[in-house]
Nucleic acid binder design. Structure first.
Lengths: 221, 221
DNA sequence: AATGTTTTTTAGATTTGCCTAAATTTAAAA
DNA sequence: TTTTAAATTTAGGCAAATCTAAAAAACATT
């Protein structure tokens, strides 16, 4: 089957929403998609007809197995293109999302699998989100701000919000960059500062800095 | 401005048709696009309103300067993606067209210019057709079967139709492959055979073989 | 439990891109 | 030049995806 860009966007968005909530409601989805509640209801009828969602009038909806498969495929395309744009075409990580929103609807399966291979089967996109594999498996990667990382958990820096010169200066000084592997050794409740272990030794950083550093780590289930 | 995939396809197709004919007619365009004449008329009204074509009821149409600019941009996108698919993702030249039909409608200008740069500013796509540059300039490259190449004209092999083992065996033996530079030295009317000059010497090939080898050369205007 | 508020759905339109069938215009032939 | 044939356009509709406004259902609160 082939689905319209619109259908794919609905499925993808439901997928993201139901990760946290389980079931998704009309208004929330409408707001997320920047459309009206009436439009959402229309589309829900269509997707329910195609058996891509479970839907009961007035009681929200969730993806069926088939719907989930499509959502994951679209997310795979999106994240692979983001990786391509960032890695090969040297786009900044804040630019890639918008362009990938268009590219993700190009449907050729062979194209995506070849692209995946060409990129060396990357496991996360430039925002640190995991890329589903050919079979739709998603590694359970958590991405959180450094100040919330559980102590003794190995993790890797994947993003820095706030791109000011001041923060970059500090990061260079502390020897932290995208890809740096680290672990929280100690947490000081007094000023919420953190002691980290990184390759080059042990360093201390402020809560403020930690809130701007995002790290990812693989959840062992 | 941003145009729909449909509008872009119409403009692109008119561009190709008017290269030979000058002015394009409703039926021819409908046939080329696999749609009905009525649909073409509808779209022509819309494109004329947007001043992308010159249109007089019952008398055909041609692209305006603005329309031509858009058509060339779409062709640029198409051919750059074809080159990418063939060169980087190792698709066969007969597979790339279909996928590029979808990719060509992704609109980001920056994406295309970065892709162009990443690919090393290629001048022709895998079918030997010229790729317009950032400013919409198209080099005047001719692509014809070898049996129609004017004698003494330097040219380069860009395609072999008929992919049978037999023809490949012959090509290997004669030392001809994609990219081979050659020139027709003599033409024999008796059996339509050709004498070619290539790097490794002078060889003779049959009409039948020549008809299956396509070459391109730059027209000096 | 009754009432009011919020959420969701229905009803009725609009736009884009397409269709078929009928009418119109142009071009060709007798 | 009149008639016929071919090409083109108009008329009227349909499906997808959206909208606003009104109706219906669910929920929350006295």
């Amino acid at each position: 089957m082939n689905y319209s860009s619109s259908e794919e966007n609905y499925l993808k968005t439901i997928f993201h929403l139901q990760e946290t909530d389980g079931t998704v409601t009309t208004n929330v989805l409408a707001q997320k998609l920047g459309t009206s509640a009436a439009s959402v209801t229309d589309m829900m009828k269509k997707l329910a007809n195609k058996k891509l969602i479970n839907y009961k009038r007035y009681h929200g909806f969730s993806l069926s197995n088939e719907g989930k498969k499509i959502a994951i495929l679209v997310i795979r395309r999106h994240r692979l293109w983001e990786y391509f744009l960032s890695e090969k075409l040297k786009f900044g990580w804040e630019e890639v999302h918008q362009i990938a929103e268009e590219l993700e609807h190009v449907s050729s399966k062979k194209l995506i699998d070849r692209l995946d291979e060409y990129l060396g089967f990357p496991s996360v996109d430039p925002h640190g989100d995991p890329i589903p594999d050919q079979k739709g498996r998603i590694r359970n990667v958590k991405k959180i701000p450094l100040d919330q990382l559980p102590p003794q958990q190995q993790a890797e820096v994947c993003q820095v919000t706030n791109q000011s010169d001041e923060i970059l200066e500090l990061l260079v000084h502390k020897n932290i960059s995208i890809g740096t592997k680290l672990e929280v050794k100690k947490y000081f409740p007094f000023d919420h500062s953190l002691e980290l272990k990184i390759k080059s030794g042990t360093i201390t950083i402020s809560e403020q800095l930690a809130k701007n550093i995002f790290v990812r780590y693989e959840q062992t289930i």
